[in-house]
Amino acid sequence: MAALLSVNAVSKRFGGIVALDDVTLTVQEGEIYGLIGPNGAGKTTLFNCMTGLYGVSRGEIMLDGKPIHNRKPHLIVEQGFARTFQNIRLFANMTALENVLVGRHVRTRAGVFGAVLRDADTRAEEAASRERARALLDFVGLANKGRTLAGHLAYGEQRRLEIARALATEPRLLALDEPVAGMNPAERRQMAELFLRLRAQGVTLLLIEHDVKLVMGLCDRVAVLDYGRKIAEGTPGAVRSDPAVIAAYLGTEAAA
């Protein structure tokens, strides 16, 4: 296994506040990697730095050996790194199918002339996009929801649609920000099963999650952030028994 994503000594400051402090971690190709930590530990900030929504103050982030820190989000997507959002950010007034088709944007080429003239290439590309988008909706279990407006979908369906939209960009690495937040146990099991199917398809997963049970059961390796610093990294078993983790994370949340 090779390192797909490596975060080297990344720091992120907002004014005087240090949100990330010298964070280093590596995600191997083909694994499910969990990122846990108490609220405000900097998990989403790290996601935003990785996916280009924030620049980094120091350090570097490499995807497959190529630097992606301080690059535009769309270039990072193009390199095969897609994400979802903690507070679902779908295009609410577009249909589910259209949402997924937007994800195809980066893998398709048709421009204004193609759009207006609808030449053979454009038609073929559009047909392939639609086919792929339908397949993805099917894959996440929304096969019959293609014509529904994204904003009208149930909460759990919206989470899954966001994953389908991200998958449409053909990512090698998919970052999911609290994908099972607010779901009931049955829905969580379905999602976990979806993640395993994704890995079987060769997608590496990076997961921010609060559900410790889900993370421990699913992830190959886990990193723990606290106050912007990585305090532990390793297999779920090893991290679970790490005293620093128990103090910082399990100590606060599990005891609460």
């Binding site: 769309h74 897609a82 994400r83 944007h105 980066v106 048709a110």
Partner: peptide, 29 residues
């Protein structure tokens, strides 16, 4: 009509709906 119902038209709609999400989905906003 042709523009609206195209890859470009969808990208415009995505930006209108949520510019950050559009960028994160690979659109060069």
């Amino acid at each position: 009509y042709r523009l609206q119902d195209s890859r470009i038209g969808r990208a415009w709609a995505a930006i209108r709906e949520d510019e950050v999400a559009a960028a994160a989905m690979g659109i060069n906003t």
